[in-house]
Computed example of a mutant assay.
Amino acid sequence: MSFLKKLTVLSLATVLLVSTASLVEAKSNLKGKITINGSTALLPLTLQAKKEFNKLNPGVSIAASGKGSVTGPQAVKKGIAEIGACDWDASIDVPGFKAFDGQVANKVAVIPFAAVVNKNVTVSNLTTAQLQGIFTGKITNWKEVGGADADIVVINRSFGSGTRVNFIMKALGGTDTVKKSSNYKEVGSSGDMKTNVATTPNAIGYLDLVYVNSDFKAIKINDVEASAENVINGKYKVWAYGYYMTKGQPTGATKAFIEYVQSKDFQQGSLKKMKFIPVAAMK
């Protein structure tokens, strides 16, 4: 290689290094504090995004927790959180919940939900009508839907859960669940649902796909498997957008964090690996 070519290559490398260093320096100068409350369905995504964002922006402190979707916009309204993670657009009225005025819904993910059962349950498919019967207490034994002669144990999410709102609207056709005096339990988070279905024989519940593992099993609804592919192709209907609610348009570190979650790199990378679906896939 000639001296002139070597000099050119060295000059280009220097420019790239300086440019990269400047970019890292600019990102590392971002400072702020972000508190995120709300959806436990979105919590794994939030925690992963926090981990990646903090590597690029160590000057931003992020605290994230999940207690159910409704607590997200409530925390934003009270001023104790900058972001309220919610499994519905809380800026408009939805069944059971009034709109949170003045809040902006920032769309960050597509969340597929699944009906899940304990591993000892032999049933692998349920129709909408059968699900309605089970969650309203009209169907109480697995033999009524083709399974073994065993009482069905219903595990439900408590009121205020976005997963519950979406499961009722999209898997149960709007038919609300009914508490039963026996073989019925309510839990406060996706993690609690996961544990209870996995450890309770003959149990049925529901979760978003990110929590589904080999400790229990997801079942088909109307002969359609709960999968990202089936959501995208329109065959599977039990899904929802996940939102980061903010008081007005986000600014500063909050804006930067939301934009990171919405970025192509995160949407096509970590988000997809976690069984969420990129927002752009539904356009």
Rank of each mutant, 00 (worst) to 15 (best):
F100Y: 12
D101H: 09
D101R: 13
D101W: 02
D101F: 05
G102M: 03
G102E: 06
Q103K: 01
Q103C: 03
Q103V: 09
V104E: 09
V104H: 05
V104M: 05
A105T: 01
K107L: 06
K107G: 08
K107H: 08
V108G: 08
V108I: 15
A109L: 06
A109V: 05
V110A: 13
V110Y: 07
V110C: 11
V110M: 12
I111P: 00
I111D: 04
P112E: 01
F113S: 12
F113G: 11
A114R: 03
A114T: 15
A114H: 07
A115S: 13
V116H: 00
V116T: 10
V117I: 13
V117K: 04
V117R: 02
N118F: 03
N118A: 12
N118T: 07
K119F: 00
K119L: 02
K119W: 01
K119P: 00
K119A: 12
K119I: 00
N120R: 01
N120A: 05
N120V: 04
N120Q: 04
N120H: 02
N120F: 02
V121A: 03
V121S: 06
V121E: 01
T122P: 11
T122H: 09
V123H: 02
V123A: 08
V123N: 10
V123D: 06
S124Y: 08
S124A: 12
N125S: 15
L126K: 10
L126E: 08
L126H: 10
T127C: 10
T127L: 08
T127F: 13
T128P: 05
A129T: 15
A129S: 15
A129G: 11
A129V: 14
Q130I: 09
Q130S: 13
Q130F: 07
Q130C: 13
Q130M: 09
L131W: 11
L131P: 14
G133D: 07
G133L: 01
G133K: 03
G133Q: 05
G133N: 10
I134K: 09
F135T: 04
F135C: 11
T136C: 07
T136H: 07
T136M: 08
T136E: 13
G137I: 03
K138P: 00
K138A: 14
K138D: 14
K138G: 15
